[in-house]
């Protein structure tokens, strides 16, 4: 089922001295529930503009964004309901949680604001959310963010995003600030949640390797334009557009590196 639809979206910024800059140029894609789209491209390619339009921090210059076939409401109760449907997971788990508040507070707040469960069930729901992101509720519920590791914090941020029972998750570089041994855990969690809950996930990253493994489909953005799209393996393993090839050639690839060093036998791991 199509949840989200970008329909020929263009965003132009007027910059003093530099004239007009097309941050997005006729971008169209659809996101189905339970599927993950990887959005890759270098800095300035327009990835974040898409996230900003989705969160209604920016409005498109032309074109339309539709949720369940309806345009995104601009204000009022409609906008609130929309924001309940779409949640963000940010890059920096050290900055996205409030240092003064307990984990319980972080998760209770969206539950209260969106009246997800009756008051009496708040505690149970918070514990259920922590379970879902594979944190032990008793170990973390009364702690503050600084007492948790980066990976634990990012799990709390994901639990918070899930609290309002959204249907879409926008994850903007959700693991790039985490230690490498924690990254796969968090990405696997996102993949599981996407599948189990039928969430549509937009995974924004410049890491081609994780994009390949965690996305069903990949969109390659360059200077505001989608230059290539296709299934994850097609785009990464058999890139067609020169820009995608360039991105791939620039990404570290030990397999290929050692294979080229040792001729025929290397890289077979």
């Amino acid at each position: 089922m199509t949840v989200l639809e970008f329909d020929h979206v263009t965003k132009v910024y007027s910059v003093r001295g530099a004239g007009q800059i097309k941050a997005l140029d006729d971008v169209s894609f659809t996101l189905e529930s339970g599927r993950t789209i990887g959005l890759v491209g270098q800095s300035g390619s327009g990835k974040s503009t898409i996230a900003k339009i989705l969160t209604q921090l920016e409005t498109p210059t032309s074109g339309q964004v539709r949720l369940d076939g309806q345009p995104i409401p601009r204000r009022g109760a409609g906008l609130r309901a929309y924001r309940q449907t779409l949640r963000m997971v940010f890059q920096d788990p050290f900055a996205s949680l409030n240092p003064y508040h307990s984990i319980r507070y972080h998760l209770e707040r969206p539950l209260r604001l969106d009246a997800v469960v009756p008051q009496a069930e708040l505690e149970d729901e918070v514990r259920r959310l922590l379970h879902r992101v594979r944190l032990e509720p008793d170990a973390v519920i009364d702690r503050r963010p600084h007492e948790l590791s980066g990976g634990q914090r990012q799990r709390v941020a994901i639990a918070r995003a899930l609290a309002s029972r959204p249907r879409l998750l926008v994850a903007d570089e959700p693991v790039s600030m985490l230690d490498v041994s924690l990254r796969l855990g968090v990405l696997n969690l996102l993949a599981d949640l996407g599948r189990d809950e039928g969430l549509g996930v937009l995974y924004i990253t410049h890491d081609l390797a994780t994009a390949r493994h965690f996305s069903d489909e990949i969109l390659v953005l360059n200077q505001g334009q989608v230059v290539e799209r296709g299934t994850a393996d097609d785009v990464i393993l058999r890139p067609q557009h020169p820009y995608t090839r360039e991105l791939r050639a620039a990404s570290p690839d030990p397999e290929k590196h050692f294979a080229s060093l040792s001729g025929s036998h290397g890289g077979a791991r």
Partner: peptide, 9 residues
């Protein structure tokens, strides 16, 4: 811990 860019999924 690192997904492979071109290796086996």
């Amino acid at each position: 811990s690192f997904p492979r860019l071109t290796g086996e999924r």
